[in-house]
Design a binder for these strands. Structure first.
Length: 1047
RNA sequence: GCGGAUGUGGUGAAAUUGGUAGACACGCUAGACUUAGGAUCUAGUGCCGAGAGGUGUGCGGGUUCGAGUCCCUCCAUCCGCACCA
């Protein structure tokens, strides 16, 4: 039997599917283990080799846990709502659900032929079936299959994952989003009780309002008014609804949102990167809109402390801590000075009726305050600005509002601000403090106002220095003439009751005094903002909400799911309403009230609880039964990318805590352990393109006339010279000479260029005219060369009109760059072709063999042969010339030692997720057994089990065919038991070193004591050679390990 | 600026607690074999040196009998956050 991997793998994939080998049991005497992958968004481009990396690791671990006797839940599904399907829908009118199903299920039938429904009558393949749309492919093209969407499921299946496919979920299916809507309803119907520190039913709040009003209520809410029970009862329904909205955990509010005009939607903070949308890179602006939000701020502290209980990397934990951004300090009120201009003394008759509340993390520096700064958007600005400064303030505000968030951030170095003419009163010293506005103060953080302490904060220092505001030094023996002192070590001075106190003590004393005098209170602030939950898009979950008289109401559970209505177009309406506003009332399967909610939920809604739905995916009455949630409990191992650190991973923790508070599940952290797989980078191929101007000689004279430009592809060496401004006349000559040698393409000639009459304008050979352009990596050979004809036919539009200059060896080569794999960089490697060539088992092992899972690593197929050859070598332990050569004879001592050494290492390495070293453990084992000519069933059977998680198809085949076991059972066989006795040796080889340098090995009886080892080694002639006859100063013997002599 | 991670042969990497640095593979060199196969087998491969030997884990220092591993200073690369009071 040959190692015919294609056939073997097909056979076992079918076997597993037919026998549901990997179905998880909901009730089992076995201990449970939940291994989860971050489910993918199914894009038409399909999987590249980077995607399955994490899936392979989790699959190996899941298979390992099954061998260890666990009942393993290892599901897979699709995060199938999202932008690309919708954007394709906008362009083509094709319903996103069709695109989505194509991307998942693909366009090929069981025999690998294209399904008829995707072929036009004229033999061309429909656009929606193609990876690159609008590239006309005919079914008669020999390689037409390379261009059509194979579907995630097909691609995943070929890699041999042990998913329990009966539990698949798709967030865009109504059966699934019914529960997304249901959970939204629960969040809407909850408030956060600070007294119990958890979410509670809104009914308990209403009951309290009816009984006592809101005086005693301590909730996470911005609502500042108080009302009595009687007042509550007298409120209209609308008023009651509005008040409750201030308490609900899912609420409607006018909020400043990240509005992306190009996408026509609102984005969450984590979807905005440097002022541009994460998807598409479009500009994002701030806009005030009525939006659904989630009161995630209520959970800020618990999201922070919960991190202590999970086994995640510090990198991710720190990102979340950073994002939550807790800072402890105090809020302090600075009364406004209401005296007349020119009056210095505080006049109690003109008592201040306003004060400015600031948040500070440094209450100890309060006596260092020499001015205050408000954000330009601060609501008090207009009120306090004096007549004299009105115009200047208006001008500054306008300028600030015109600056986008991005500009404001980019412009950190520029210090700007404007005095308002108003003063505040220092709460302790009574001094007059000028009030400024400045855009370094953010309206959205803290109170939007700061007390400026230039001696202790660099930004305040810069501001004070720039505007010549006095700087008061309140630190003992610290020089602040060159900059602020922001350390938290030292002693406070010039500060009344704080003078002489160490900084840390002074903080506590200052807060106590502030509270005692009623000037403010100790306070903790979080950078985390409530999460906007509305999107103005079609392809998302509809809200289970309708409006009657502008009051939002929830749709009754009996009518869930509220299904997406059909619309004529997937664009906003002319009035700027979201696409759902296009739906006629009749288009809604269910509608009520004046209108339904037109927004849809964001992408993170469906992904925030999918790990719970897998536990009970077909339950029609609950999103998960309590019983099953209790059984499966937390995800034991979660594998996925770190790019979700502040998105999905934060939101799902939030929902999990919420569901825990409301009693639906009994754990409040979803993912017990998480591993973040590193990115696999692709090798890109780039050519340098130089845009040059040509000069034309007029009538063959010395007069030159500038002609239109031309792009030439130049060799890297020349490009680098241009880049570094080292381009010399020799290089120019080289270009000209070689340009003339080039066989000018037809199109070039068609422009009637006659090179004899043209010269390149040297002026145009500049860095600015040089760019590099990605070309498809499949166009280059192993020496990085490409053929011009192939390049031009690959992208006619780009390269048709170009002239190519070879390098000094006459070759056309590309420049390599290692970067993220992406369609636009043409450096994508798909797993399919590798599976075809080497088999899934080889691909699985090779991806693991590349390096540590967490590490970013470049993809390189060169090494794949090594892994493939390993499997072939393994095969030869079982088969020779087509015959099984496994024997029942007992194995030799050496072979047993090899086996048990391997069992130990495989187990240890799997437990610490060191998949790469485990591949080499298996290689070493096979190398040794081959050398030992071991064909003993006793050993090989155990080896096959060790191998099964990595190369499951090959393992199954060897298990049943070569070893004669019943089919399929290697997946549920028992993991071999390590026997330490097998490794015991009579002798131990001691490396003997002198002054720490290893010189020779000494083989000595294992039973020797340290003293015996020392004596034996000293007696050796080699030792005497290194000691040069002298006695060693000291001898260190670590029994079983090493001998070191100090000379 | 803050936080995190990483730095080891020509390449991917290994060395789990301080104990023979470079396992395992790729590549390369030389050879063998053959039904020419992305085959198999043998030997070699950090660097310098003919050899003895010397030297070597980003740089510099320290602790230790012994440091890739622990401590300090610095450098480089990558990732995240960034006027957060």
């Amino acid at each position: 039997m040959e190692y015919n991997f294609n056939e073997i793998e097909r056979k076992w994939r079918k076997y597993w599917a037919d026998h549901k080998t990997f179905a998880a049991e909901d009730n089992s005497a076995k201990p449970k283990y939940y291994v989860l992958d971050m489910f993918p968004y199914p894009s038409g481009a399909g999987l590249h080799v980077g995607h399955p990396l994490g899936y392979i690791a989790s699959d190996i671990y899941a298979r390992y846990k099954r061998l260890r006797g666990y009942n393993v839940l290892h599901p897979m599904g699709y995060d199938s709502f999202g932008l690309p399907a919708e954007q394709y829908a906008i362009q083509t009118g094709l319903h996103p659900k069709i695109t989505t199903s194509i991307n998942i299920d693909g366009c090929l039938d069981e025999n690998g032929e294209i399904k008829q429904e995707f072929v036009n009558p004229d033999g061309t393949i429909k656009d929606e079936a193609l990876i690159v749309k609008s590239e006309h492919v005919r079914i008669t093209d020999p390689n037409y299959q390379d261009n059509i969407i194979k579907g995630y499921r097909n691609q995943l299946d070929k890699i041999g994952f042990s998913f329990d496919w009966d539990r698949e979920v798709r967030t865009s299916s109504p059966e699934y989003y019914k529960w997304t809507q249901w959970i939204f309803k629960q969040i809407f119907n909850s408030w956060y009780n600070v007294k119990t520190d958890k979410a509670e039913s809104i009914d308990s709040l209403i009951a309290e309002f009816e009984k006592n009003g809101n005086a005693e209520v301590k909730a996470v809410s911005e609502f500042a008014n108080t009302f009595t029970a009687q007042e509550w009862k007298n409120y209209s329904e609308k008023e009651q609804s509005d008040i409750l909205m201030e308490y609900r955990l899912a609420y409607l509010a006018d909020s400043w949102v990240n509005w992306c005009p190009a996408l026509g939607t609102v984005l969450a903070n984590d979807e905005v990167i440097n002022g541009l949308s994460e998807r598409g890179g479009h500009p994002v602006e701030q806009k005030l809109m009525r939006q659904w939000s989630m009161r995630i701020k209520a959970y800020a502290e618990r999201l922070l402390t919960g991190l202590e209980t999970v086994d995640w990397t510090d990198a991710i934990k720190d990102m979340q801590r950073n994002w939550i951004g807790k800072s402890v300090g105090a809020s302090v009120n600075f009364p406004l000075w209401r005296g007349n201009e020119g009056e210095d003394a505080f006049d109690s008759a003109q008592a201040p009726d306003h004060s400015i509340e600031v948040f500070t993390t440094r209450p100890d520096t309060i006596f260092g305050v020499s001015f205050m700064v408000l954000a330009p958007e601060h609501p008090l600005v207009d009120e306090i600005t004096t007549a004299e400064y009105k115009d200047a303030i208006e001008a500054y505000k306008t300028a600030a509002s015109l600056k986008s968030e991005r500009d404001r951030q980019a412009d950190v170095k520029n210090i700007t601000g404007q005095f308002t003419g108003a003063y505040a009163i220092h709460p302790f010293s009574g001094e007059k403090i000028p009030v400024w506005i400045g855009d370094y103060v953010l309206a959205s953080y803290g109170t939007g106002a700061v007390m400026a302490v230039p001696c202790g904060d660099q930004r305040d220092w810069d501001f004070a220095t720039h505007f010549n505001i006095p700087i008061k030094n309140i630190f003992e023996n610290v020089d602040i003439s060159e900059g602020a002192y922001s350390e938290k070590e030292g002693t406070i001075a010039n500060s009344d009751f704080l003078s002489g106190l160490p900084i840390k003590k002074a903080m506590a004393v200052a807060i106590a005094k502030i509270e005692e005098q009623g000037l403010g209170k100790g306070k903790t602030n979080y950078r985390l903002r409530d999460a906007i939950f509305s999107r103005q898009r079609y392809w998302g979950e509809p809200f289970p909400v309708y409006y009657k008289n502008e009051i939002p109401y929830l749709v009754d559970d009996a009518h869930l799911p509220v299904e997406l209505p059909e619309v004529d177009k997937y664009l906003p309406t002319e009035d700027g309403e979201p696409p759902l506003a296009r739906a006629e009332k009749s288009a809604w399967k269910y509608s009520e009230g004046d209108r339904m909610e037109y927004n849809t939920m964001p992408g993170w809604a469906g992904s925030s609880f999918y790990f719970l739905r897998y536990m009970d995916p077909h339950n029609e009455n609950e999103f998960v039964s309590k019983e099953k949630a209790d059984y499966w409990n937390q995800v034991d191992l979660y594998i996925g990318g770190s790019e979700h650190a502040t998105g999905h991973l934060l939101y799902s923790r939030f929902w999990c805590k919420f569901l825990y508070d409301r009693g639906y599940i009994s754990f409040d952290e979803p993912f017990k352990k998480m591993i973040n797989q590193g990115m696999i980078l692709g090798t890109s191929a780039l050519v340098y393109v130089l845009k040059v101007e040509f000069l034309k000689s007029i009538n063959n004279s010395k007069d030159w006339k500038l002609e239109s430009g031309l792009e030439i592809v130049i060799p890297e060496s020349i490009a680098l010279k241009i880049k570094n401004s080292e381009f010399k006349s020799d290089d120019y000559k080289y270009l000209i000479d070689n340009l003339n040698k080039v066989e000018i393409s037809e199109s070039f000639n068609s422009k009637k260029f006659d090179l004899e009459q043209y010269v390149i304008d040297q002026e145009s050979i500049r860095k600015e005219n040089l760019r590099s352009s990605h070309i498809n990596v499949s166009l280059i050979n192993s020496s990085n060369e490409y053929l011009i004809e192939e390049l031009v036919s690959w992208s006619t539009i780009m390269f048709e009109d170009m002239v190519f200059v070879p390098n000094t060896f006459g070759k056309y080569t590309v420049h390599n760059e290692v970067e993220k794999m992406s369609k636009s960089k043409f450096n994508v490697q798909t797993p399919d072709e590798l599976v075809e060539k080497f088999g899934a088992d080889t691909l699985r092992m090779y991806e693991m063999f590349l390096g540590p899972l967490e590490q970013t690593k470049p993809w390189d197929t060169k090494g794949i042969n090594g892994v493939h050859n390993f499997l072939r070598k393994l095969w030869r332990l079982f088969y020779s010339e087509g015959n099984v050569i496994v024997t029942n004879e007992p194995a030799g001592k050496e072979s047993l030692k090899t086996l048990h050494k391997t069992i130990k290492k495989v187990e240890e390495d799997l437990e610490r997720f060191s998949f790469n070293t485990n591949v080499s453990n298996l290689m070493i084992c096979v190398n040794e057994l081959t050398e030992q000519k071991c064909h003993s069933k006793e050993v090989l059977e155990q080896l096959v089990i060790l191998l099964a998680p990595y190369a499951p198809h090959a393992a199954e085949e060897l298990w049943s065919e070569a070893l004669g076991n019943p089919a399929g059972t290697v997946s549920t066989a028992a993991f071999p038991k390590f026997d330490p006795e097998m490794l015991v040796e009579a002798n131990t080889v001691y490396p003997v070193s002198f002054n720490g340098k290893m010189r020779f090995n000494a083989e000595l009886p294992t039973a020797f004591s340290a003293k015996e080892v020392e004596d034996a080694v000293l007696a050796m002639p080699e030792a005497q050679k290194w000691l040069e006859g002298k006695a060693p100063k000291k001898v260190i013997v670590v029994p079983g390990k090493i001998v070191n002599m100090v000379v």
